[in-house]
Design a protein around this nucleic acid. Structure first.
Length: 741
DNA sequence: GAGTTTGAAACT
DNA sequence: CAGTTTCAAACTC
């Protein structure tokens, strides 16, 4: 579910693409123009899903791994999905292509992930369906007109009509199923995917749910790279397909310059990235810019790779990129692009595991579940899209950018504005609009949440929202984001998002706020700056001439690019995460300490509380397991920590006892008496006082203080205790006096 | 708080 | 890739 601009793709660290949702497609044969359907062996890719439902996955994936340009788009639909690819059914799918390739649809039981890594050299596109059994279908693709036609025979007329009429979306009806794919890259040139009726297919098991769920059967998938994507028109619902209930259907498309837009009527879109969308339209796309390759390649046992369609242009317009949470455990960054164009903008954010995803939304006219009539592209209802990523389930308003202006203002509490999530470490992408109904509720945003108006004043704005934002969304479920020029980025709405740093979990990092930086010369746009290095915006820092904010997003993005050019892993955590605890944690590059003995915080290893390893180039290292210096240091640190804790506990106890005593003895205090009541010195107070004195004695002993000094420290502490008692008594007296008066 | 030390990042 | 410079954090006084 990632959309990454070609330029960005090359810059992104591997980890950014590191998602379980991404599926490495074996390098297909460049010369291959046809792909054979897979035998009956279920080699389909198992996909993770929240629900153990049988699912079907239809994926068009460009195959490329060298540059790791992900161009995969996956849309999974839950049961009732109009995409009626039934498990175990054979789906004849053909693509009208000059090369006449054949695609294979392979159903799998599990909900599939549709992300595929591609490279520039990739020339293949795969279409897979997951279900109970594999589906094989002829699949042809036409690069010339950017059309992919499934079930060519059945849809020939529709294809012809599309070509002649140039009408972008085309719906092919077949046995209660409609699947339409439109190539955005070349508007007016639809890619039609037609799915045959599966009810009569052998091996398909009819279920009661199937027969009673007359959900509209249509899917529209838009493929292309143009920003002028038109909303897919919902079509009249067709007859009920089999296995709709309790089944997930996944459409997976990966193509060059590929946008996939699917319009599902009354469908839950369940992506393997655990995206469950109740919105009518979920458009997830990832762009590829591998032009002019029309060969279709067979992916061994997995997918049939179809080479990316000829891209309309190498100059991909900026696109709105939306990162959608991936598989559980991954780090996700909420990226809300600041779109200057209606529909497209690319986002760049440093940090690991960022998902550069484009979420292009389209909606259907109704969310009621009723089959929509022949649709129109003007579906303007902003609807909440429930996205579930692992444990995350969030409701994100999905509003077609091109129709945002038509959305009627709604109260801030509108469901369409509700963004909720139940999992941390998820980064959400939420469309922002200038519309009043989705104006941000800043009071609900965590400190540092980044919201900024689109520089170009586009009708859709996005902001980069750190993972913590999502976390805090749990406490403030009603959050809205919007692009607006009415608020400055520096108005305390930027978040100190922290990526996994030094191997610490996000929870660890978030638990302690990052220290503010003090950069003076780097403009906070170099890795000297911890904020920048951690992929954060500066907030409440002491830096001068800071450019690490949305006000200087252009410079910031440029700096990010520079850093990534210099080191593609610049924003990755330096401390690898150990598999079995801290023992496996180690610095990715190792330190180079020369004078600190690696026992000071100058050393990145020591700072991360890990031992130096063989990859370190340090001189005179004392930061190893058996190092006596290190052990001594650790013991001292531990002892100090314990002392502090004990002292704190003792003082807290003393204060508590005094307070408790005050509560019990205050009435006794005479308002006019000049003598402090000795009743304050109770057994509890004495005990607490003694504990404080003992702690002082221990402290003096551990620090090897002379006897005189130790006595002084104890007496001093005793004085402090007495002062507290006296102060409390005096306060009680005053309070009592005031009450009596 | 000012000055020094340190090592990573940046630069050549 | 190595050497140098720059930089900001860590540290000391």
């Amino acid at each position: 579910m990632d959309v990454v601009s070609p330029e960005l793709n090359s810059l992104l660290p591997d980890e950014i693409m590191d998602t379980e949702a991404i599926e490495d497609v074996p390098q297909s044969q460049p010369e291959s123009t046809t792909s054979q359907s897979e035998p009956s062996d279920d080699t389909s890719i198992p996909m993770e899903t929240d629900t153990p439902m049988a699912s079907e996955n239809l994926g068009l994936c460009s195959d490329a791994t060298s540059t790791e340009h992900t161009r995969a788009l996956t849309t999974s639909t839950a049961t009732d999905s109009p995409l009626s690819i039934s498990p175990g059914s054979q789906l004849p799918i053909s693509i009208s292509s000059t090369s006449s390739p054949i695609l294979t649809l392979k159903p799998t039981l599990a909900t599939s992930t549709a992300t595929t890594k591609t490279t520039d050299s990739v020339t293949g596109t795969s279409v897979t369906t997951s279900g109970l059994q594999k589906l094989t279908a002829p699949f042809t693709i036409s690069a010339a007109n950017h059309q992919i036609i499934l079930n060519k025979v059945a849809s020939s007329q529709a294809t012809e009509a599309a070509k002649s009429a140039g009408t972008p979306p085309q719906v092919i009806k077949q046995e209660g199923q409609k699947l339409l794919v439109t190539a955005i890259g070349k508007s007016g040139q639809p890619i039609v995917l037609q799915l045959p009726h599966t009810g009569n297919k052998p091996g398909i098991s009819q279920t009661a749910a199937d027969t009673k769920s007359p959900a509209p059967q249509f899917k529209v998938v838009t493929i292309g790279g143009r920003s002028d994507l038109k909303p897919v028109v919902g079509s009249v619902g067709n007859q009920v397909t089999t296995l709709q209930a309790q089944q997930l259907k996944t459409v997976q498309v990966t193509l060059t310059e590929l946008y996939v837009s699917s319009v599902f009527k009354q469908m839950n879109i369940n992506v393997r990235l655990n995206i469950i969308a109740t919105a009518d339209v979920l458009l997830l796309a990832k762009t590829l810019h591998k032009p002019h390759n029309t060969s279709i390649q067979s992916l061994p046992g997995k997918k049939i790779a179809i080479s990316p369609l000829k891209t309309p242009s190498k100059n991909i317009k900026p696109v709105q990129s939306v990162a959608v949470g991936g598989v559980g455990g991954s780090q996700f960054k909420t990226i809300i692009p600041l779109a200057t164009q209606p529909n497209v903008q690319q986002i760049q954010v440093p940090g690991s595991r960022f998902h550069y995803v484009r979420l292009v939304t389209a909606t259907t006219a109704s969310s009621t579940g009723q089959p929509s009539g022949p649709s129109t592209s003007s579906i303007q209802t902003a609807k909440p899209m429930v996205v579930s990523t692992g444990a995350v389930r969030m409701s994100v308003p999905i509003v077609p950018p091109q129709t945002m202006k038509q959305v009627a203002p709604k109260p801030l509490t509108s469901a369409a504005q509700v963004v909720t999530t139940t999992q941390t470490q998820q980064r959400l992408i939420m469309p922002a609009t200038p519309l009043p109904q989705i104006q941000p509720n800043f009071t609900n945003l965590p400190p540092g949440t980044v919201l900024a108006p689109a520089p170009g004043g586009g009708n859709v704005g996005y902001a980069v929202v750190p993972a913590q934002y999502v976390t805090q969304l749990q406490q403030s479920p009603f959050v809205t984001l919007a692009s607006s020029s009415s608020f400055p980025a520096s108005a305390g709405i930027q978040t100190q998002a922290r990526l996994p740093l030094n191997g610490l979990s996000a929870a660890e990092t978030t638990s302690r706020p990052r220290k503010p930086c003090n950069c003076t010369k780097s403009q906070c746009l170099k890795l000297y700056c911890d904020c920048f290095a951690n992929g954060e915006f500066c907030n409440n820092c002491n830096c001068n001439n800071c450019f690490n904010n949305l006000e200087h997003e252009t410079e910031r993005l440029k700096a990010i690019k520079t850093c990534l050019d210099r080191n593609p892993e610049a924003f990755k955590p330096k401390i690898g995460k150990g598999k079995e605890g801290e023992a496996d944690r180690r610095h990715s590059k190792g330190c180079n300490c020369k004078r600190s003995g690696c026992l000071k915080n100058y050393c990145e290893c020591y700072e991360a509380k890990i031992m130096c390893s063989s990859i370190c180039k340090c001189i005179g290292c004392k930061n190893f397991e058996e190092s006596p210096e290190r052990k001594t240091l650790m013991h001292l640190a531990d002892a100090a920590e314990v002392r502090v804790q004990q002292q704190t506990a003792a003082k807290t106890k003393l204060s508590s006892q005094i307070s408790d005593l005050l509560m019990r003895t205050t009435p006794v205090v005479s308002s006019g008496g000049g003598r402090l009541p000795y009743t304050f010195v109770t057994k509890e107070v004495l005990e607490a006082t003694c504990e404080c004195l003992l702690e002082q004695a221990k402290k003096a002993e551990q620090t090897h203080q002379p006897r005189a000094e130790a006595e002084r420290m104890i007496l001093e502490e005793f004085g402090h205790c007495l002062m507290r008692i006296i102060s409390s008594a005096g306060k009680a007296k005053a309070d009592c006096a005031s009450i009596n008066c």
